[in-house]
């Protein structure tokens, strides 16, 4: 083998050029197989006659029509609407409000910021369990208030089929608000202080400074917050499982719990696959345009 020093250098150069790709290749392959491969597989399953086990007999749109006729799926879709809307709106409004309050150059801001941000560090299972205990009439708030002497105090939303979905909203809002607050706080800190001074001299009262000058400038933060919250809402599974397990009855079923129960306890893999593909489509419809605009914005 002729191996003169310059050729040796060239070989090393080529190795350096290929090394990052080599190192990334295994994880790329795994990702391709386990994420995109299974997306394709699940999509296929949704058009087959799969029950407890995969069955590759093609049945066309039969599973999809079963899905849309399912009573529980209707509840799940209704719940995700109610939950998603309340969750996104509450987190955004509360997060913005907290950020504005924290931005008033108060003392102990660092401590407060950390306190508000901490719930995000918990797993949804922990949040769900803690809130389930807290809202359980026999264990938490209701029992405590009655022991303190308020005999007529009642707060039984958790076991009330009409209200249980709202307890999930409360827990989810509690968890994500701090994170949204941090996003808004970063946005507020990026606003030129001279602009606020100019508005003061222009005679704008504080609320108008926020309404007319500061909040319109937070538009990109609103967009990010809503996209983050929307996909969290659609994916929500563990919180529901830990708090209500989808009950009482099916009253707190959401698409993710629907998919889980159809796949693993009701042996209707085809329907479960169809619901999963539907969820993916909704999330993709939200995320893809967002990522596209973000990445393009980063380039220009």
């Amino acid at each position: 083998m002729p191996s003169s020093p310059p050729r040796h250098g060239e070989g090393r150069g080529r190795l350096q050029q290929w090394l990052p790709k080599l190192v990334l290749a295994p994880s790329f392959a795994l990702l391709l197989f386990f994420v995109y491969g299974f997306i394709v597989w699940t999509s296929y399953i949704s058009f087959t006659d799969s029950g407890m086990l995969p069955d590759y007999t093609w049945v066309g749109l039969e599973q999809w029509s079963k899905l849309w006729r399912s009573w529980t799926w209707g509840i799940a879709l209704h719940n995700i609407w109610v939950f998603g809307l309340l969750y996104i709106v509450s987190c955004t409004v509360l997060g913005l409000l907290l950020a504005i309050l924290l931005d008033q150059r108060i003392r102990a801001e660092g401590v407060l910021r950390t306190i508000y941000l901490y719930p995000m560090a918990l797993s949804f299972i922990v949040t769900g369990t803690a809130w389930q205990w807290f809202l359980n009439p026999g264990l938490g708030l209701e029992k405590t208030m009655r022991e303190l002497g308020w005999e007529s105090f009642t707060f039984n939303w958790l076991i009330n089929a009409d209200m249980a979905i709202y307890t999930i909203v409360i827990a989810a809002v509690w968890q994500a608000t701090g994170f949204i607050m941090a996003m808004f706080l970063a946005g507020l800190r990026g606003i030129d202080g001279e602009m606020i001074k100019a508005a003061q001299i222009d005679g704008a009262p504080t609320w108008k400074i926020y309404a007319r000058i500061i909040i319109p400038q937070l538009r990109p933060v609103f967009l990010s917050a809503i996209v983050v919250l929307a996909h969290l809402a659609i994916k929500s599974f563990d919180l529901v499982v830990a708090m209500t397990g989808g009950g009482p009855g099916n009253s707190t079923a959401v698409p993710a719990t629907f998919m889980y129960s159809y796949a693993f306890s009701r042996n209707e893999m085809g329907i479960a696959a169809a619901s999963a593909v539907f969820m993916l489509a909704v999330i993709a419809a939200l995320i893809v345009p967002y990522l596209y605009s973000e990445l393009r914005g980063g380039r220009s």
Binding site: D192, E194, M195, A198, Q200, I201, R212
Partner: peptide, 27 residues
């Protein structure tokens, strides 16, 4: 500041980015 009958031009100009030029001047 609003009641001192003064106007100020800032180093960073401090224009309101969400308003048009006319909106800025007329604010």
């Amino acid at each position: 500041p609003a009641r001192r009958d003064i106007a100020m031009v800032f180093q960073s100009y401090a224009l309101y980015p969400s308003m048009t030029v006319a909106g800025n001047i007329g604010f």
